[in-house]
Design a protein around this nucleic acid. Structure first.
Length: 569
DNA sequence: GCCGTTTTCGGCCCGACTGTTTTCAGTCG
């Protein structure tokens, strides 16, 4: 069992213990152990094999044994026992905002409700109102929460979808029947969420390939199986489709199944206007195929410059391609450094040094440390003394580190009135300041807008962190007049964060053209809380590309001297 | 369930907010 799976089981045990009404600190211990595992760069198999698992902080005798069982046996009877005490639907109910383990337990025990659908029905019957600790308002809130969940049901975050997709790709790539194979669909377009994995293969023998696909180890259920298309559901709940065409048809199929639907409609209409017909099997003029060896040639045959998959959203990319105005989009290799990461000084799990090592390993030349400020108590926010302490630690490290420079930053909380969590004198000490909203998300739009405008007007602030506060598939953005915020940000020459954490991807790519139009640069920031989190910047690059950004539009493509010039305003 | 020590068990992050209640429990970040 992989580390990620072990972490998942430990977190689920914590939840189940809380549902059961166990000592909450016991549940916390499981969460702590999960964090400890996530935080160590070591392979979990090595830790178990070498008997060093117990050396991790928060893992004692009992957890050491349970984790070892999980890793070696792939399952844990303790976990399965716990799980069997509750209906499976209870996990979905727990995802309703405002419902924690205690309230869910009350609902389940007193109403016998065990699925989202039953709960919705119970709300409509006014049965929640009667329960201790509940009332009319909480019932309405639960209903709104169910609506939100239903809206997102069946969608998966980009990191999950990509991981699953790449695993399938890797498993099939070596198959002797495969000539070409690629990920298509929303994953290839770097969408922030996906419903399923789309794979397209070119092959002369679809039969054996399909047989291999439907019997891959991650497949839970085969939904459909045919010669050209098979559809399965993976253990994770994610769907996966494999379409097999001849090798000659591959470029057309890849384009067609990459989408988006809007892009394809526009492309087919264009083909018609030019006397051709286009579908997933080819491009035809008068019934005769127009041969293309790759996607670029298809675009070229239609009089278009190549359109990168990220741009294929039916938002003017075809018109731009016709004019030859598809920009050279920003690439991973353009990134020079990382801004906005956390360390164990606040709620991260790694030290300054470990984060620096990881950033250097990714080829980055600077790393901006941005732990939380003191108002973020839940996240172990730093006070003024701790900030000074960290400053000294960074100075010490910078003297010994080679190839990478640590920058002194802070993610300062924007307080409810738009003032910041540190005085201007303290903020002025940092190399740069990221200002973010972490509380009071429910202010009316006008007040929220005033609040953030005030924050970005502070001369010490250089970056506005996760500008809309959304959590993908979980929390809507807070109401805010983003255009007004962008105007103010432009006036004060600050930069807008593209938070690359897969749960955020905030600012939304649909808004990025407006950010650029306002004359603002975007900073692709991982908001990493552990070393592996730095690689999330890849998702940020994908989103930046969806927003039509070039290297020049992205702050952290600057070399350190130019970056510091920007920070000093 | 972990940890540190008071070496055998008590404390474990905590304040704001919400909706319930009439002084507080649960949830969230």
């Amino acid at each position: 069992m992989e580390k990620r799976d072990v972490v998942g089981v430990l977190e689920e045990i914590a939840l189940l213990l809380e549902l059961k009404g166990e000592n909450p600190f016991k549940a916390r211990a499981y969460v702590n152990a999960a964090r400890a595992l996530e935080g160590t760069p070591e392979e979990i198999g090595d830790l178990v094999a070498s008997g060093r698992l117990g050396e991790l902080p928060g893992i004692g005798e009992a957890l050491r044994e349970k984790i070892a069982t999980l890793v070696t046996a792939g399952r844990l009877p303790y976990h399965e026992d716990l799980r069997s005490r509750f209906p499976p639907g209870i996990f979905e109910i727990l995802r309703i905002p405002g419902l924690g383990p205690r309230k869910v337990r009350v609902i389940w025990e007193s109403l016998g409700v065990s699925t989202l659908g039953e709960l919705e029905y119970a709300c409509h019957e006014n049965r929640l109102v009667e329960l201790p600790g509940f009332g009319l308002r909480s019932q309405e809130k639960v209903l709104r929460g169910i609506e939100l969940l239903k809206k997102h049901r069946g969608r998966f975050l980009c990191d999950v979808a990509r991981r699953e997709g790449e695993a399938l790709l890797k498993a099939l790539q070596g198959h002797p029947a495969v000539i070409r194979i690629a990920l298509a669909g929303s994953i290839r377009r770097c969408s922030e969420t996906s419903k399923d994995v789309d794979l397209v293969a070119g092959s002369g023998e679809p039969g054996p390939l399909m047989a291999a696909f439907v019997s891959l180890p991650g497949v839970e259920e085969v939904l459909a199986r045919g010669e050209t298309r098979s559809s399965v559901r993976l253990l994770s709940g994610l769907g996966a489709d494999l379409r097999v065409v001849s090798d000659a048809e591959f470029p057309y199929a890849l384009h067609y199944f990459t989408g988006s639907k809007e892009h394809n409609v526009a492309m087919r209409a264009r083909a018609l206007r030019r006397g051709m017909k286009m579908n997933e099997y080819g491009l035809f003029r008068g019934g005769e195929p127009v041969p293309c060896s790759d996607e670029a040639e298809i675009f070229s045959r239609l009089g278009l410059a190549y359109v990168p998959p990220e741009l294929r959203e039916g938002r003017g990319e075809i018109e731009a391609a016709e004019r030859g105005e598809i920009p050279r989009l920003v690439e991973w290799e353009d990134l020079k450094g990382v801004l906005h990461v956390h360390t164990s000084a606040s709620d991260g799990s790694a030290t300054l040094e470990e984060m620096a090592e990881a950033a250097r390993g990714l080829g980055m030349t600077y790393l901006g440390i941005c732990d939380h400020s003191k108002a973020a108590r839940y996240a172990g926010g730093l006070n003024e003394e701790q900030v000074e302490e960290q400053e000294r630690a960074i100075d010490r490290l910078n003297r010994s580190l080679e190839g990478i420079t640590l920058l002194k930053g802070i993610e300062v909380d924007i307080l409810a009135d738009g003032t910041l969590d540190f005085s201007d004198e303290v903020l002025a000490r940092f190399d740069f300041v990221v200002a973010s909203v972490h509380s009071r998300f429910n202010l009316p739009e006008a007040e929220m807008t005033r609040r953030i405008v005030r924050a970005v007007s502070n001369r010490n602030v250089r970056i506005l962190g996760h500008p809309t506060g959304r959590l993908l598939l979980a929390r809507e953005p807070y109401p805010v007049d983003l255009k007004a915020v962008l105007r103010s940000a432009a006036e004060h020459e600050i930069c807008v964060e593209l938070n690359a954490h897969p749960h955020r991807l905030d600012v939304d790519w649909r808004m990025i053209p407006e950010v650029k139009a306002a004359g603002l640069k975007v900073s692709i920031n991982p908001d990493a809380h552990h070393p592996e989190g730095l690689a999330d910047m890849r998702y940020g690059v994908g989103i930046a590309r969806k927003g039509w950004l070039t290297r020049e539009d992205v702050l952290n493509t600057l070399d350190l001297p130019d970056l510091m010039k920007f920070f000093r305003g």
